[in-house]
Amino acid sequence: MERIPILKMGKFLLVSIQVDMHDRLALTLQDELTARIVEENAKGVLIDISALEMVDSFIGRMLANIATMARILDAETVVVGMQPEVAITMVELGLSLPGVRTALNIEKGMEILNSLLQSETQDGTEGSET
């Protein structure tokens, strides 16, 4: 069966969507990603969609769901590399992905995750560590 590879990079997981996904594949990705977050104890997820030529309401919902589920599992999600024409279309469609962090590219996405992780550990040391 077709699958989208999930790579582990330190404390983060990286997913690069390179194919035109059909709906089942998107749902599989959602399942596998949440499973891997728990398995790897990941603190962040980077989803690179720079190769995606469109994001419709289904894929938009998948991205929002992943972010929400990841947050419950104590991981932050950053969606990176959305193309301008895709962004314009999504806004027109009415999808603004509230609550999903975004970045221009993987590098910037990584910076965001790192700084989030840092502030969290700082909070941790100052607060009550059990």
Partner: peptide, 12 residues
Amino acid sequence: FKTVSAARLMGA
């Protein structure tokens, strides 16, 4: 607002 939203989706 649409412009701002689209830019935000791209990470800016």
